[in-house]
Computed example of a mutant assay.
Amino acid sequence: MIIQKTREEIELMRESALIVSKTLGMLAKELKPGVTTMQLDKMAEEFIRAQGAIPGFLGLYDCPSTLLCSTNEAVVHGLPTDIPLKEGDVVAIDCGAIKNEFYGDHAYTFEIGEVAPETKKLLQITKESLYVGIRELKLGNRVGDVGYAIQNYCEAEGYGVVRELVGHGLGKKMHEDPEMPNYGKRGRGKKFIEGMVVAIEPMINLGTHRIKQLDDGWTIVTLDGKPSAHFEHDVAIIDGKPEILSTFGYVYEALGIVSDEEDEFRQNTLVL
């Protein structure tokens, strides 16, 4: 059952989402060759707690870390390690936080130095597909409309859309109804309602859509060893339309990127 949120609850969820957004922005300043994801994990935990929040992943399903850091062929759920990042890597950082009992859940795939052109394009298309999907989160539509939009956009570029891992409803639990696949058919699945909040998160592979889990019981990698990308926003339906609660603005500020990609969705002014 989809849990409807009040306007007040959505504002509390926005606060949680923005704590995660700020965490990703802080980490963006630290990402460079030689840094380890274990170091980033420690920074993230300290930063989240300093905001008066609790790391959302730590202890959830026995997760041992604050961040999930998935490098290159890792799709999602990569555990932090002491292996230094190197020039040309890409690392998807997924982060959660709990504030006022509500979760925020947010992810961004970062480039370490100069990456291969085909990998850079994969990241670009995956991020664009996130917004393509968000546009379909509105009253009158269903889960399949979002999934179809993302799948169609990415498969047109020849990319593999992961099937086994999906987005999800969000609230006082990390995973609520509905599941939000990145594939589907128009007009299928649960109908969207006013006040619902979901995490939309395309997980797109350069090659095959097929994946496997490593022996650590967490890390998911592409079956063919090619790179993967992952971007995620928390989105509510307000007045029948999608409103993004998280933002990549803090990441862009840290990296010196100028972008207006969120403007058409954001109804409230956010001072970065």
Rank of each mutant, 00 (worst) to 15 (best):
A92V: 05
H77M: 10
V76D: 08
E45L: 00
E45P: 00
L40Y: 08
S65L: 11
E73M: 14
G34L: 15
L67E: 02
Y103R: 10
T37R: 10
G104E: 04
D89E: 10
P84K: 12
E46L: 05
G96Q: 03
T37E: 12
K86D: 06
G56D: 13
E45G: 08
S65N: 10
V35A: 15
K99Q: 09
L40H: 02
T71C: 08
S70F: 15
D62W: 10
P33K: 14
E87P: 12
Y108G: 05
L67N: 08
A97N: 01
T36G: 08
L79P: 07
A92M: 12
I83Q: 13
L67A: 06
P64A: 08
F102Q: 02
V90K: 09
P80F: 09
M43T: 08
T36A: 12
K42W: 02
P33R: 13
D82V: 14
A92K: 10
T36F: 11
G104Q: 04
S65I: 03
T37K: 09
P64Q: 13
T109I: 05
I98P: 12
G56Y: 15
G96I: 10
I54Q: 14
G113V: 04
A44R: 14
D41F: 02
E73L: 12
L60E: 14
P80G: 09
S65W: 03
I54K: 15
G56N: 07
T109C: 09
S65R: 07
T81Q: 10
A50P: 09
P80T: 06
A74L: 06
G78D: 04
I98M: 09
G59C: 06
E101H: 06
P33F: 12
G78N: 08
A53N: 00
F102A: 00
P55W: 05
G56H: 12
V75F: 15
Q51H: 15
T37M: 11
A92P: 05
S70G: 10
R49D: 02
T36C: 13
